[in-house]
Design a protein around this nucleic acid. Structure first.
Length: 625
RNA sequence: GGGGUCGUGGCCUAGGGGUUUAAGGCGCCGGCCUGUCACGCCGGAGAUCGCGAGUUCAAAUCUCGUCGGCCCCGCCA
């Protein structure tokens, strides 16, 4: 059997689309052989495309030659099949398949392409080595869970575009080859051939351009903007990532909040069918800083974070003592009826928690008879146990899951832990659920407002912008700029989701004198400021409107909505931890000729560098010939 | 830059100094099978245990180094 060209064959339905209503129709499906079940006298092929799976039946009595061809099919062969949709007999219906009430009785078939045996299983959902997945990403992406996430990503983006479009926003692209600015993350640089010795930078964000668009009078801008930061990677950090970036004129902070709340409400409804409760709670920065009292936003499914710091202050347990001594805290989530959790389950959660940057997870269970079950039992005397139990509001049968350490970390970890518990205990509302009150909301958004304008950079012995230097101070605090700059509050705000940062923005400065004042405060002398940002300040002199905006982490949001921890799972072609694209091998060395053309010389090259550590032949083996 | 963890046929795992001729499941190849859907049954091929040193009579197993994946700290205005 040799592959043939399509020669006029047209696909009439997708595999996942077949239903009882199609019975009797002659249809043509095209897709990949998902699985073959050869019963000897009967062959079933599960044919898969992006939409789903259809069962095709080959019967030798219909066409013996076709039947023999079907026996020769192998997984991942690409075929086109024309046949008649038939209702499945009672007892042969597959409830697991959307198309499970029907099957396609094959009449003719065309082999479109063959396939080698794939190096990773495409027809089953199992945990695979990340390196293998990245090297064969084109096959990894063929797997159903990956396709679902890529589709989710598309839908999230589309929902955002639709909503913002309906609100009068214009999607405008900004340049990728931009001017390098010293502040912030390290830049990716691009040498200019036309201007020897000069470099572009890839944008860390479209910040300056979107402000200029406001000066230009475009009034409402947004973009799913690709951003680049040359910093070390994490599960939630890639060197290139995507932000929902927007900016508005003639607005104040509340207007931004309303737009974002509307955007997220629409997006969650469209993509997950969940009705988010808006507006999101707001918390001034100083409250978050001092108490970090997450009571309201965390009042979800009854699993609030309980502060146990004082309750366990007398417990002679090293990790807790250290945490408290260093100004941190001990907090716990009380899991209703959780005391029955197995050692295996708590160990698993413990490993997750460690991976999120906490020292470990400590559990104290209270049996139905009130008996204490804990690995820390020997550290817990009667009094401490009682006070812990009271602070944790634990009833008989409950389990308290405890994390200790620096407060921000504890809160972030507990936020993730709670989401994980919600998933495991099936407490997260199913798609389509109307969330009546914020306490049931698995996605707990929170605005943190009024960040300080500056913080002190100990290393450089100077003030530094907390958000960025284009952020406007609160008008009432401007007089403090000269006298007590650290007390100046800014109009910067963060959007926090389940204890992790999901976005941040601010109302911007739109007048030259104030911008100059801020530059001066952070130690940028007028001449340097003019050199780097003169174009912006000059723009302010031509009728810049009041404006502000925000950027949301699109990858992170999509990951959370997909229920995965790593943004790599929602990026089609991500980099590995060493910022290497394991599929193509990038970055690679380039020829001396290329370098010469760019007036670039490579110095101090590390021997056997990382680009060389992806052997060329391995890459070749992974790439299509 | 640092810490942790993992690396065993194509895939996922077991084995943690000598009864291992490296085990199992999936996959692959061949045979049988007309209602399967993770089809079933029978048979077979496929691994010098990431790589390199060292310890030892003996190393997949212990030690050191190295390479690679992942997680974290630093870093990410």
């Amino acid at each position: 059997m040799q592959p043939e060209p399509l020669l006029g064959w047209k696909r009439t339905y997708s595999c996942g689309a077949l239903r009882l209503t199609h019975v009797g129709e002659t249809v043509t499906l095209m897709g990949w052989v998902h699985r073959r079940r050869d019963l000897g006298g009967l062959v079933f092929i599960d044919l898969r495309d992006r939409d789903g799976i259809a069962q095709i039946i080959f019967n030798p009595q219909d066409n013996s030659e076709l039947f023999e061809q079907a026996r020769q099919l192998r997984n991942e062969y690409v075929i086109a099949v024309t046949g008649v949709v038939e209702q499945r007999a009672e007892g042969t219906v597959n409830r697991e398949l959307a198309s499970g009430t029907v099957e396609l009785r094959a009449v003719t078939m065309k082999l479109l392409n063959t396939s080698r045996v794939p190096p990773l299983p495409i027809n089953e959902d199992r945990v695979l080595d990340d390196g293998l997945r990245m090297k064969y990403r084109f096959l990894d992406l063929r797997r159903a869970p990956m396709q679902q996430r890529i589709i989710t990503r598309h839908r999230v983006g589309k929902a955002m575009r639709d909503y913002l479009g309906s609100q009068g926003f214009l999607e405008i692209e900004t340049p990728m080859l931009v001017r390098s600015t010293p502040e912030g993350a390290r830049d990716y640089l691009v040498p200019s051939r036309v201007n020897p010795g000069r470099f572009y930078a890839l944008p860390q964000s479209p910040q300056l351009f979107k402000q200029l668009l406001m000066v230009s009078g475009l009034e409402r801008y947004f973009q799913l903007a690709r951003c680049f930061r040359d910093e070390d990677l994490r599960a939630d950090r890639q060197p290139e990532f995507t932000q929902l970036d927007l900016e508005m004129s003639f607005i104040e902070q509340d207007d931004i909040f309303t737009i974002i709340e509307g955007t997220l409400k629409h997006t969650f409804k469209e993509v997950l069918g969940l009705d988010l409760v808006t507006p999101f709670p707001r918390m001034p920065y100083h409250v978050a800083e001092q108490r970090y009292s997450y009571d309201k936003p965390d009042a979800w499914v009854g699993m609030v974070f309980n502060d146990l710091t004082s309750a366990v202050s007398k417990v002679e347990f090293g990790a807790w003592k250290t945490a408290i001594q260093e100004g941190g805290c001990v907090k716990g989530i009380t899991v209703p009826h959780g005391a029955g959790a197995s050692r295996k389950e708590t160990d698993e959660l413990g490993n997750l928690v460690k991976g999120w940057g906490a020292g470990g997870l400590f559990t104290v269970g209270f049996g139905d008879d009130g008996a204490v079950r804990s690995s820390l039992a020997r550290y817990l005397d009667e009094a401490s146990t009682a006070s812990l139990r009271e602070s944790a509001q634990a009833a008989n049968g409950d389990m308290v899951m405890i994390v200790a350490g620096p407060t921000p970390r504890v809160l972030e970890v507990l936020g993730k832990l709670r989401l994980e518990l919600g998933r495991r205990l099936k407490l997260i509302p199913m798609p389509g659920t109307v969330i009546a009150n914020p306490a049931e909301q698995p996605f707990n958004f929170l605005w943190v407002v009024n960040f300080p304008q500056f913080h002190w950079n100990e290393e450089e012995q100077r003030l530094e912008a907390e958000h960025h230097p284009f952020t406007s101070p609160l008008p009432e605090d401007i007089p403090l700029m000269k006298t007590d700059p650290l007390k100046v509050r800014s109009s910067a705000y963060d959007l926090v989701l389940n204890g992790t940062e999901m976005g941040s923005g601010s109302i911007r400065i739109h007048q030259r004198p104030l911008q100059e004042m801020v530059f001066e405060a952070i130690g940028l002398d007028p001449q340097a400021a003019n050199e780097k940002f003169g174009f912006l300040m000059e723009a302010f002199e031509y009728g810049a409107p009041p404006h502000g905006g925000i950027a949301l982490g699109f990858d992170r949001l999509t990951a959370l909505m997909s229920g995965v921890d790593s943004i790599r799972e929602v990026i089609a072609f991500p980099k590995n931890q060493n910022a290497v694209d394991m599929l193509t091998g990038a970055p690679v060395e380039v020829t001396p000729e290329q370098l010469a053309l760019l007036s670039v010389a490579v110095v101090d090259k590390k021997p056997a560098g990382r680009s060389a550590s992806v052997p060329a032949q391995e890459v070749e083996a992974g790439a299509p010939a």
